[in-house]
Design a protein around this nucleic acid. Structure first.
Lengths: 170, 170
DNA sequence: AGTTTAAGTCAGCCTTGTTGACATTCCAAG
DNA sequence: CTTGGAATGTCAACAAGGCTGACTTAAACT
């Protein structure tokens, strides 16, 4: 409905005519691209008893070693019960190590074991390969735009988490 | 690991240095942005007995009215059992109508009812509002780049589906 | 006539999300 | 010192939405 009718949006000096059709194409692009984005790690995980939730935990523990459970909870946006089930299996399988905090012994700090890092590498390599190919195909300007739009699409809380991770990284 | 070490990629005339860190930021941007992308419709659906799967079915039936079950299956990338469960509830709730094909009576052609279109509108409006804000914030060049990268990230099969939908649209 | 295709259905399983209730441990404030 | 609250862990139950496998029906194709 309303195809062709412009959803006008005025932004400072810029007057953008964003039709519903253009927005819908953006929506569909996100849907199809996210499928591709997760496809490669999913294939690797399917062989083991793990799923996407395990991948996410492993990714962010690798990204910020020593992170607390609570911090991970905020980043992942799931309940502690849900995360706990995933962490329990990862710990008992020897991929993740949970150390009691030194300053606050209630906290658990999470680290990947060597085995955990190995799996992380396998998953990351697969996901990065696709991202690298996409970045290469699209070119540097497109990559900058890609990141700008994605950042603008996040909830402000996630935007802060993303920025924090970005700055801690490089 | 390998932070700082460049994953070089040569693309025709362009020499891109894509570090693992840059790729990881792209990966995390996708993760956080997709959460935002689904957040608004999810909130609407949570009040009803519906979930994201119902939203996807409604979206693509609206997009291509009269589509067959098999076609929808290919676009959504799920099993017919999974889709059927969703379609059954949508049909019995009066949001979707299933008509026997005229030329091939084995096929069922799917259409939204008035009630279905109403819900579709509510969900789309919410999702488009966020997309519109992100597009406006980022600007037209960024939007073009965003779409280029996403398209390059899709599996080729999905890329074809996406292009077909795009061309059928505007 | 026999095979293939589209769709639907039943049963069962898995992952991953949810609530709610409750125990433990420890820090910090009164 | 005691009490309240925070961080964590755990148990149970449940739901959504994926999956596989097996089977039926009806129509179309060869």
């Amino acid at each position: 409905m309303a195809d062709g009718r412009p959803s006008a949006a005025i932004s400072g000096e810029n007057l953008l005519f964003l039709t519903d059709e253009q927005l819908r194409q953006g929506i569909e692009a996100m849907f199809f691209a996210y499928r591709g984005f997760t496809a490669d790690p999913d294939r690797i995980l399917a062989d083991m008893a793990y799923g996407r939730a395990h991948h996410r935990a492993i990714h962010f523990i690798n990204r910020a070693p020593g992170t607390t459970v609570n911090n991970l909870l905020n980043i992942l946006g799931v309940t502690k019960q849900s995360l706990n089930r995933v962490l329990r299996t990862l710990i008992s399988d020897g991929l993740v190590e949970s150390r009691v905090g030194r300053v606050d012994k209630r906290e658990r700090h999470l680290y990947l074991t060597d085995e955990g890092r190995t799996l992380e590498g396998r998953l990351s390599d697969a996901q990065r390969a696709r991202m690298r190919a996409a970045f290469r195909d699209a070119g540097p300007e497109a990559v900058a735009g890609f990141r700008q739009v994605l950042e603008a699409m996040m909830d402000s809380e996630m935007q802060r988490a993303y920025t924090r991770l970005k700055e801690s990284g490089a």
